[in-house]
Nucleic acid binder design. Structure first.
Lengths: 132, 132
DNA sequence: GGTGTCAATATCCTTTTGGTAACTAGGTAC
DNA sequence: GTACCTAGTTACCAAAAGGATATTGACACC
């Protein structure tokens, strides 16, 4: 059975649209995509921009994104080697939804952090109130 | 140092806006939020709608969302117990960014799956070409 | 007093994720 | 020939996430 003409539904556990949410949730993938939004970046630069990610994990992330057709990997025949990663048009099309989410995140984070503090305090008090 | 007036930046590893991406990436959290978009739902209903999630994991997810102020938990003094989960206004405000992402996901998944197949095949051939 | 309902918890176990540290390849510079 | 460059790979390890299964509490029904 092929999925191309199904009304994709995220709530259906068999629907592969869930993979997208997994990509976004990946610790580094969405960050990489956003960094690549300004144009091609090479491996070592990416490492610096995304900040202290180990080469192994960055490679894993990049391979996964490449596999999904979101980025391309270009090797230049130079010494020392130079490899550049760039968004595909598919990758670029993800940029906007990601930006929407990012803006939401950046503007609501204070509220979320306050909610956490309040919640944690309430929990503490509940524990003090009934220690057994 | 307080974060409320900082220009939140997802690329800064110290910026808490990253927590949002982690929430979204959570295997069940974003699904729960989207299910709750239609109004309050009780625990057992949620379990069915999100499909085969174990109670432990659903509880974990719900507690995390509650802690972040995205949903509320209401216990009705009944027997058997009835507990309803509902989006807060903060949770509702996340609905739209999530929908944007969801539409992207549902419409581009076929392309992604094709890219994967192509990538995997290319890998296989590369292995066959140079088996050592 | 046994059974059922709902919303969990508790215990245990497996899988996945992320990370450290060391090493490789191919060449250039000294 | 030793050191250094980039872009990785390899082996190993710890923590976290996710899940299976059994049990609990409060009551209602029979």
């Amino acid at each position: 059975m092929d999925t191309t003409d199904l009304p994709a539904n995220i709530l259906d556990p068999n629907c592969p649209s869930r993979v997208v949410f997994q990509r976004i949730g990946d610790k580094w993938a969405s960050l990489v995509i956003q960094v690549l939004g300004d144009g091609p970046v090479r491996f070592s630069e990416l490492r610096k921009m995304v900040n202290v990610v180990t080469p192994k994990v960055l490679t894993q992330t990049l391979r996964a994104l490449e596999r999904d057709g979101l980025i391309t990997r270009t090797v230049y025949a130079q010494v020392p080697p130079r490899v550049e990663y760039e968004l595909t048009s598919l990758g670029e099309s993800l940029l906007q939804p990601l930006t929407v989410l990012r803006h939401w995140a950046e503007s609501h984070v204070p509220t979320i952090l306050e909610a956490r503090d309040a919640y944690d305090e309430a929990q503490d008090e509940a524990l003090l109130g009934s220690p057994n």
